[in-house]
Nucleic acid binder design. Structure first.
Lengths: 148, 148
DNA sequence: GGTAATGATGTAGTAACATCACAGTATGGA
DNA sequence: TCCATACTGTGATGTTACTACATCATTACC
């Protein structure tokens, strides 16, 4: 029963996820809600329809997620400038700051982890992990394609 | 906004998880239940108490998980040989076969992913990822320690 | 201007995962 | 023998995440 590189990669994912869950406990943030914040940070303010498409969930579900995030002050609903049916969802100032801080912590952790690798091999490891991620993305996309 | 190695690692975790969820859809298996099977495969038959401890959830929750897995034929409850209060939970033959197959698929995927890395760098990448996983495990353990 | 599509949401419902409190039974030591 | 303790199971509940269907306002097309 060898330990494959995939085992290691998944171990990393699990450890991180577990740690995140611990960090978020009590803040009212859950993984689905963090995903919303993530999409908003990278895509900017958008309608709930767009959010639903990006998250691949039903629009109705987005309403609930945004409700929760609005109640906790992470997100704001503003009227859409040109379509009075729609709302624009955007990150609040505090959420933006929180996300920025997370990003910084993230970068720091990244550096710490890379520090565990032999200096001469760091570049190779970075390249290799990127290549693996890309390959996996392709495989998953193919699998999804084949299914539909 | 650089892409850090941690971003890549998390991307891998997410892709894999998403793909697993898709693969399990319709089989009645969920992540929590697969975790149970995983513990049983690695730890052998055990009582629900032991299972609860290994999974870090309440015994009540384990009852429900085992109920579901028993109904779907993945797991069997047998009387404990020396303690008539307790039950031993063990994998069914079919579940054992399923897990073995998963393991094989796992190894195959692992090889495919490693194939995306430059041949000369594969050993370094394997070492590096292992080192990162170990470092992260230590960090998480420390964080948990500091919290309690 | 009338009709159909679109965006958000209310209502209702499902399913998984988790908790606590409690009951029943078995164990094992005083 | 009796009593505390341990293991499983039940009942009641809570939260989260998702769905489908229906509604209402607004927009867009012909």
């Amino acid at each position: 029963m060898d330990v494959t590189i995939l085992d290691r990669l998944l171990q990393i994912g699990e450890l991180f996820q577990h740690d995140m869950a611990r960090a978020f406990a009590g803040t009212g943030l859950t993984s689905a809600r963090v995903r919303v914040l993530w999409v908003l940070q990278h895509g900017g303010p958008m309608t709930q329809q767009a959010l639903a498409a990006a998250l691949e969930v039903s629009p109705r579900n987005v309403t609930g997620l945004v409700d929760a995030l609005e109640a906790s002050g992470h997100v704001r609903r503003t009227p859409h400038p040109s379509d009075r049916r729609a709302v624009l969802v955007e990150l609040s100032e505090t959420a933006r700051r929180t996300m920025a801080q997370m990003q910084r912590d993230h970068a720091e952790l990244s550096a710490t982890l890379l520090d565990a690798v032999e200096p001469g091999e760091r570049a190779a490891v970075e390249r290799g992990v990127a290549a693996i991620a890309d390959r996996l993305a392709v495989l998953v996309a193919e699998a999804r394609e084949a299914e539909s």
